[in-house]
Design a protein around this nucleic acid. Sequence first.
DNA 1: TTTAATACCTAAGCGTTTTAGGTATATTTG
DNA 2: CAAATATACCTAAAACGCTTAGGTATTAAA
Lengths: 111, 111
Amino acid sequence: MRSNSLFKGSLTTIILTLLEQNEMMYGYEITQKVKEIANDLKITEGALYPALHKLEGDSLLTASFKKVGNRTRKYYKLTENGKTESVNRLNDLKDFVEQMQLILNTKLTTQ
Amino acid sequence: MRSNSLFKGSLTTIILTLLEQNEMMYGYEITQKVKEIANDLKITEGALYPALHKLEGDSLLTASFKKVGNRTRKYYKLTENGKTESVNRLNDLKDFVEQMQLILNTKLTTQ
DNA sequence: TTTAATACCTAAGCGTTTTAGGTATATTTG
DNA sequence: CAAATATACCTAAAACGCTTAGGTATTAAA
C-alpha cells in the first residue's frame, strides 16, 4: 500500500478475527502474525496495546498472564460477547466493501 | 451496517472516484449521490466539506462557483494530480481488501 | 405559513492511530 | 564477551478523521 496505514477502524476486526482463529494469543504474537500473513498491513504496538485494553474493558476479551521462562506474556481470548462481536465486525466489513463497490462501480477483488 | 459510519479514510476515495465518474459535482450533490447508490453509507456534511477543502488545498481538486437561479453552488473537479491520486486511492483500497481477506481467511464479497 | 429540502459552512469533542518514547529479558552476531 | 537485535510489555502527546451540533440563506412543498 502506498499509504502506510490500514483503514482506520479495522484493527479491532483484525484482533477479534485472529482470536477466533487461534483461541489464545498475546499482543506481540498478533503483530507478528499480521506481518507474516499480510506484509503490507503494519500494525504498530502503539495502536495494538490500547486496542487490546479497550476490548478487555468492553468485556470482549479476557486476559491472563503466563510465564514462559523468565518472561511474562499476556494472553487474550474471546469472551462470549467477543465471539458475537467478532461476527458483527466481519459483517460490517463485508457490508462496507459491498457498498464501496456500488459507489466505485468496480469490483474490489479479483478472486 | 450495524455501525453507522464508514471506515475512516474512505471518504476521500469516495469523493475522488465520484469526480472521476462525473467530471463536475458540488458538495450537496455528492451527499445525495452516495445516499442514492449506497444507502447504508451516510456521509455527513460535517465530514464532507472539510474533506473537500482539504482536497482543494492539496491541489487535487479545483473549485468554481456557479449561480443557479438565486442560489450558488460550488462545483469541484479533479486536477491532473487528483486524477492520479484517484487511481492510487482505488489501488490502496483494493490492496486493503486483499490483505484483509488474507487475515480473515475469507472472501469479503460474493460477486 | 410553517416545514422540509437545497446549499453552503464552522467548531467542539471523540475515538483511533501515529509517533516516539520507556523497561526488561533473551538471543544472535561480530 | 559485548553489542545489537528480537521478544514482550507499556504509555503519552499529537495528529487525524469523523460525529455532533450548531449556523446562514434560498427554494419548494404541505
